[in-house]
Amino acid sequence: MATKKFLYINRKPPHGSIYALESLEVVLIGAAFEQAVTLAFIDDGVYQLLQNQDSSAIGTKNFAPTYRALGDYDVNRIYVERESLELRGLVKEDLMPLTWEDEDDDWAEKDSIHVVGSAELAEIIEQQDVILNF
């Protein structure tokens, strides 16, 4: 089977609608297909990665911890747009630390999240084969 570059673009905040949760479900299923997977969080999508989310009092599924499992699925190219963070007064430290273990580097724990400017993200978008939007 041919390997393609899949990019999942997330632009919606996590709890007011189901898009973030169902996007995560696609990413987890897609990881099994051994394609090159990249995630981008843009605009309100950056709120999906915010620390300390707890949906217990609104009675919805608390799926924020699932993002931390992405590294175990070899999903470790996660790009967050700097301009989106800045507009919302956020810095990388406000986001959940997402990591993966690099088997080619003695299982060293590495950062999955890369904060990139819009120009760099534009290039990343150009390099993809399939782009899915949520």
């Binding site: 089977m1 041919a2 479900e25 297909f33 399939v130 899915l132």
Partner: peptide
């Protein structure tokens, strides 16, 4: 069918 069909279609 499953979500795999979406990925498979993309491939």
């Amino acid at each position: 069918s499953g979500l795999g069909q979406l990925i498979d279609a993309g491939i």
